[in-house]
């Protein structure tokens, strides 16, 4: 069922592009949840003939943590209305898309020269995961809001996971669970810090420019 793996890889890159071009934070979180859900589907299509309990477990845990709990925490962190839209990104939305396209082309070009030993599930896995990592990185550096930077980090992690899930079975399941748990705790702590940043800004800049709320630098 290689074709389904291909579809999933491409959908994940497209969803990252959508997040890159969006300016409403709530919509971005929604698209991220969808992306994580699609990522969680991947283990079920990898070994089409025999789905092992390991695949089911990783798929389900990915979906529960990344497609449900993480978006929930992020929505909690932005419950203040003034946080809901990204303002003045360092690179405009149109330019972001063009840069995004260049980044994707670059990722495909780089992965031409890398050969994965053994039988990879699909040729698209490596370029797509590299593109997602780079797009996530781009979101992190070009956006000024704390919560959008967290989203960028999460997309970067999704890219790494796309790579990890589809390529090999070297990691023991427990350690993969540990990695997922770590990322979950990371988001949890980041959300708390975002929340504290908001509170501090509310305390100190009640009369000053409200539009700076949630900005980090």
């Amino acid at each position: 069922m290689t074709s389904w793996v291909d579809v999933i890889c491409i959908v994940i890159v497209f969803l990252s592009l959508i997040i890159l071009s969006n300016h409403r934070v709530a919509a971005m979180i929604g698209v991220f949840a969808l992306q994580s859900f699609v990522l969680g589907l991947l283990p079920f299509f990898l070994h089409a003939s025999s789905i092992s309990s390991r695949d089911i477990m990783i798929g389900l845990v990915t979906m529960i943590l990344k497609a449900a709990l993480v978006p929930y925490i992020l929505f909690w962190a932005i419950r203040h209305v003034s946080m809901r839209s990204e303002i003045k990104p360092i690179i405009g939305f149109g330019a972001s898309i063009i840069f995004g396209a260049i980044v994707i082309a670059g990722a495909f070009w780089v992965s031409l020269s890398l050969k994965i030993p053994g039988q990879p599930a699909s040729d698209l896995v490596l370029p797509c995961s590299l593109s997602t990592v780079l797009l996530g990185f781009m979101i992190m550096v070009t956006r000024t809001r704390a919560v959008t930077q967290v989203l960028g980090y999460l997309i970067l992690e999704n890219g790494i996971f796309l790579f990890a899930i589809s390529l090999f079975d070297v990691m023991p399941v427990l350690i993969e669970m540990g990695i997922l748990l770590d990322i979950f705790v990371a988001v949890f702590i980041m959300a708390i810090v975002v929340n504290h940043i908001n509170e501090e800004f509310e305390k100190n800049t009640a009369s000053v420019v409200q539009s700076n709320m949630g900005e980090t630098f």
Binding site: M140, E157, A186, V193, F217
Partner: peptide, 25 residues
């Protein structure tokens, strides 16, 4: 808890998380 310390925490969290993500890669 102050603005500066939260900013420092944020910078630490973000830079190190990305760094650590690269190490995961």
């Amino acid at each position: 808890r102050s603005q500066q310390s939260l900013q420092a925490t944020w910078r630490y969290l973000l830079i190190c998380s990305v760094g650590i993500a690269l190490a995961l890669m």
